[in-house]
Design a protein around this nucleic acid. Structure first.
Length: 485
RNA sequence: GGCGCUAUCGUCUAGGGGUUAGGACGUGAGAUUCUCAAUCUCAAAACCCGGGUUCGAUUCCCGGUAGCGCUACCA
């Protein structure tokens, strides 16, 4: 790739009217991958021209989510709200050159026209009242300080055709176009001005965005042409849908990137999963490292049909990543999870080495980080409850209290207190009493972890250590004796 | 309604004029076992419909249908 010519410049341009959702994250990811693949530049721009709906705190939340996903930007973030003068300047320029005109219609008038058009089952495009205003009339109304918007003078005939890198050739008849607003009557630009002017000023070479912008593209191309500017390449991405095949929205539950972080999802897992929504790497491998993704990413292999977001597959992928996590990354993540879940207090006596051993033991069956503080709670705190289901399943045998007490006494002298020795002692006891080892093992598991499901019992004992094991056996025997009468 | 786009297992997708239509998640069965997960084996599961082109279409073309998008002084 030659660096001098065609240096790739792409951007991600969210609007701070909500949190970064998975669809936006996927768009950001594809832009980022494209930039990295081509050794280009990834620019972040905040489209906050809608003063009413934009919230500054959402901007920082979006940045945070992008950083969490590892999608770092090379330039920006640029705020459109700080470039308003520039947009007005361009709008004025378009007006001077006859590509735009002032429109004095009020919101009420426009609404009335639209309603009537719908009633008559006509397309509800702007009727062009102010487009046909004589120049003198325009001067007159302006001098009266009547509020006005600036509209683009769309061509009345012809077709705009462009080549989309994902969708192929797209044609759009100009008769479908209306004279869309460039500048609102309060002087603020609309979306179309913001994108075109910024993409131009920022020398964007490839506009990679959601397919919901496909129909907007002809309008923007017309603006580039009116400005006598080169048109960038376009690549539209299929949309991400909910399980009901509707466009993803709050109704679908977790859609914000931050929600997945809170659910205990790893950023690399979410990133990998998102990459597979609409893009397939060559070969049949689905777990793809970042480096491989960058190397293999290609807009031409992006799908054209919308994709349903499948949380089940994400969960599977997260488990895959969790299992592969090296200890030095796993342990801090687990500690953080335990702390935020309140399992580990500030004054916890647990040392790092212990936490590490417990985390590694739990690692192979964890689906999310939440599992460490949830199902794994008993490894990090003495304050855990016996799961009613576990009791029902493994504590139904009579005489268990006495059996656990006997086990406690045997284990008190097991030396060393490791998986091999504890297993030997437990099996010996089971044989001595003529009960199946499984019965004792399962009952003990509930005693030690409160759960019906846990790692291998003897590994659990080895990690917990003699002191905790004996104490918990005592507690369980007590509990059973009290309940079973 | 108008315009645009899309259409392969439940889901994500590969493929492509002649294939046993491939993989992954999920689902079912089995192996293993100390519970569960993991792992291994096996199984069920798809080319939207109708025309056309062709010796032959799931693949190419047209139409229909369905879904999604746009249709704002939102982005």
């Amino acid at each position: 790739m030659s660096a001098a010519v065609g240096q790739v410049r792409v951007r991600f341009a969210p609007s701070p009217t909500g949190y970064l959702h998975v669809g936006g994250a996927r768009t950001a990811l594809f832009n980022w991958l494209f930039a990295r693949h081509h050794g280009g530049t990834f620019i972040l721009r905040i489209e906050d021209t809608d003063a009413d709906r934009s919230k500054p705190e959402l901007t920082s939340a979006i940045l945070e989510s992008l950083e969490w996903l590892g999608l770092t930007w090379d330039e920006g973030p640029f705020l459109q709200s700080q470039r308003l003068e520039r947009y007005r300047e361009v709008a004025a320029q378009l007006e001077q050159r006859g590509y735009a005109y002032p429109c004095f219609c009020t919101a009420e008038e426009l609404q009335a026209k639209r309603t009537q058009a719908e009633a008559e089952r006509r397309p509800a495009k702007y009727d062009g009242t102010c487009r046909r205003l004589p120049e003198s009339e325009r001067q007159q109304r302006r001098s009266e300080n009547k509020p006005f918007a600036i509209r683009f003078r769309a061509p009345e005939a012809g077709v705009t055709t462009f080549h989309d890198l994902v969708f192929g050739d797209i044609s759009y008849d100009h008769r479908e176009l209306e004279d869309f607003v460039l500048l609102r009557s309060d002087g603020n630009p609309t979306y179309h001005v913001g994108v075109v002017v910024d993409d131009l000023d920022m020398r964007i070479t490839h506009v990679i965005r959601g397919a919901d912008h496909l129909s907007n593209t002809p309008k923007q191309i017309l603006m580039y042409q009116a400005l006598g500017a080169p048109v960038p390449a376009f690549a539209h991405l299929p949309l991400i849908l909910g399980p009901d095949r509707q466009r993803l929205s709050k109704r679908h539950g977790a859609i914000a990137v931050s929600a997945y972080r809170d659910l205990g999802i790893l950023p690399e897992a979410l990133r990998n999963f998102l990459a597979l929504l609409g893009w397939t790497p060559p070969g049949q491998q689905e777990i793809v490292s970042l480096d491989e993704m960058i190397r293999m990413f290609d807009l031409q292999s992006v799908s054209r049909s919308n994709a349903v977001f499948d949380p089940e597959k994400l969960a599977w992928m997260n488990a895959e990543y969790l299992r592969r996590l090296p200890r030095e990354r796993l342990v801090p993540l687990v500690e953080e999870e335990l702390r935020s879940a309140g399992v580990l207090g500030a004054s916890s006596a647990l040392d790092r080495d212990y936490i590490a051993r417990a985390a590694v033991l739990l690692q192979s069956r964890a689906r999310t980080l939440k599992d460490f503080s949830g199902a794994g709670r008993a490894f990090f705190s003495d304050d855990f409850a016996y799961d009613p289901e576990a009791i029902k399943r493994f504590w139904k045998e009579p005489g268990l209290a006495e059996l656990l007490e006997a086990l406690r006494q045997r284990l008190a002298h097991a030396e060393p207190f490791d998986a091999v020795q504890t297993e030997r002692q437990l099996r010996a006891l089971a044989e001595e009493r003529g009960v199946k080892a499984a019965l004792l093992i399962n009952a003990t598991r509930v005693a030690l972890t409160g759960q019906a499901v846990a790692p291998g019992l003897f590994d659990v004992m080895a990690v917990l250590g003699r002191e905790r094991v004996l104490e918990r056996l005592r507690r369980a025997a007590e509990h059973l004796a009290a309940v079973n009468v």
